[in-house]
Write a protein that binds this DNA or RNA. Structure first.
Lengths: 102, 102, 102, 102
DNA sequence: TAAGCATTGTCACCCC
DNA sequence: GGGGTGACAATGCTTA
């Protein structure tokens, strides 16, 4: 049984072990603190990104366009065209592509 | 004039300087690469966070509840209480709570 | 065999029937169009909802609170209470609430 | 003053008018009910869409691919290529497009 | 039942 | 400051 089940026990159930409950609370606290720490770092990075945009803007660049370019580069790299062929089959069936000769 | 203006010149305008344009492109490339690098790090952190939640889940913790608790911890205590009170006001107006005497 | 299988045939396979393929394409087109029509209606409703919120906001209501209250109204009363209790359990484990005697 | 402000009055403030408060509550209730009604309709449409997919699936179509096709059709129609030219300028600066002669 | 995916809602940023 | 837009998180559905 996962130890966290201890936290979820129905009221009125007998506590199995004070020690176990303590461990569980410590474990939960550890998870929460790890998450909160990671979120802080993530937030700091978001601020760094904002600063770079601000710097670019102060140099005269259009940040809106920059964002679009970055988004497009991301899409290209993700290369969503897996299953491309089957999609084409359906598109053809819908008249979205010219018919081909088999 | 900010050097980025070079990129925005109308077609047909005379290019002021090939050298200047090259510098501007380099500068833009630099900004974009810095941003993309920071975003990668940010994404990696997001994945780390997901992993911690997954680990907590495998230990039997309820991640939905964990998220709510973490959100609550983030909020200012005063704001939190004010929000709770306002919810009650609205509930009361909707007959979801018994009326109270002021 | 379901008729759609016609679309999935391997290249080089002999086409069973041009007539069948045409029917299948029509059928697919029909499905797609029905879905797109329904999605349009759904989108229109989403916009209506947004408008109601905007109107409420212009009358001075706090839409964030409204959203929370509506979410609460949607939830099963029992589930809601169970969730609240679980949040308290977690808060207590994290020292955000005083300990209680069982 | 927007009438909803009545609901938000600080504790201890004198109630301006019981009648006004009643009207405000009615108004809130009206907004909430309108929203809930619209959400029900929206939910019903979502179920209709699900049913169409289920029917298509039972005819042998691959619903995952269908979803992709529908998404692509939506994107095409949205025609995000506004500001396309300026984006090209930036892409060129980043070496994502071949250089052109002005 | 869990994991991935798709949608939906929330939040923050940006511009007006 | 407020409204609109876009990113992000979170929940619910689908499938394996």
């Amino acid at each position: 049984m996962a130890r966290a089940a201890e936290l979820h026990r129905e009221r009125g159930e007998k506590t199995e072990s004070v020690v176990t409950a303590g461990v569980t609370a410590d474990q939960l606290r550890s998870f929460v603190e790890r998450i909160e720490r990671l979120e802080e770092e993530k937030k700091a990075l978001a601020e760094d990104i904002k600063e770079v945009y601000a710097e670019a803007k102060s140099e005269g660049f259009d940040t809106k366009i920059m964002r679009q370019v970055i988004r497009i580069r991301k899409m290209n790299e993700a290369d969503l065209q897996e299953q491309e062929e089957l999609i084409d089959v359906y598109k053809r069936a819908l008249g979205m592509l010219p018919d081909v000769e088999d």
